[in-house]
Design a protein around this nucleic acid. Structure first.
Lengths: 143, 143
DNA sequence: AAGATTAGTGGGTGAACACCAACTATTGGT
DNA sequence: ACCAATAGTTGGTGTTCACCCACTAATCTT
């Protein structure tokens, strides 16, 4: 594999693959679950962390707080999350997943699993595990 | 590693890594070589394929022909490529790398190599090779 | 009580991206 | 000669993304 071609650079190929799967996931998240990628990520993060403030959620996902507001506005509208003032510190919200939110999250996860399965189909189970490990290893130092 | 978290989905982590390295490369390409990612890709593709028509270049890179026009306009302006009508079919251009273009490409490549090296630093040489193989394997079926 | 800090909000920006329609010049098919 | 198809060009579109500033309400510091 020639080192000088675009296909010879790992990050380039990685990027191609990642963007393709991102688009596939985004497209299919827009279907049944009716979620954007960010909305899905927010729901997933909420599920991981339990009730949190909007701000914490925003920084956890590496996005601007003002963008998080608008994201939450819609999720609240659709009753996927509940946004109540934190009684301890009334500047903050306590954002929690509703039953509907959990349902949407589950639907989203199954979409992600499907696409992931299709994307990684050319690999054996061992290779998939290896790829995941390597990606995580990079991601850790990288952040 | 829990399958249900965001960090448990391979494509998600892959995407994070890929986007980070893309940004790093784009930032540093903007420095000394003064190139955008697309411009760099075009130069690299030109070097791979030799003189080609703009259209062929556009489809090779998966971009719109009209966007390629504007990209080429700037590269021609900066004398990084020469754009001459193909004498055989005068609808086409024969786009060729100039000496300056080759120089810019070399500078770009060294940037890419540096960033790639830094990005993949947490991995051993064997792991880097493995990662590249896996990425290419996915990319092939995926296209 | 005053001033600094933090959470959330609203409004807005500029760049990148991925297109699309309409047009000219040229060529190939018949 | 005529028509269809192709290469390139121009001038747009709408979306996403990643910000930034100014502001309110609440809290913390002193």
């Amino acid at each position: 594999m020639p080192m000088e071609t675009l296909l010879g650079t790992t990050t380039f190929v990685l990027h191609k693959v990642a963007v393709a799967s991102r688009r596939a996931i985004a497209d299919r998240l827009g279907g049944k679950p009716g979620l954007t990628l960010w909305q899905f990520a927010a729901l997933a993060e909420l599920d991981d962390q339990g009730p949190v403030a909007q701000n914490a959620l925003a920084t956890a996902l590496g996005m601007d707080p003002s963008d998080m507001v608008r994201l939450m506005d819609e999720l609240v509208d659709r009753r996927l999350v509940a946004r109540d003032r934190d009684p301890v510190d009334r500047r903050r919200y306590r954002v929690t997943l509703t039953a509907g939110g959990r349902k949407a999250l589950a639907a989203g996860r199954s979409v992600v699993r499907e696409v992931e399965k299709a994307t990684l189909a050319p690999l054996t189970a061992a290779e998939r595990a290896m790829l995941h490990d390597l990606a995580v290893k990079i991601h850790r130092r990288d952040r």
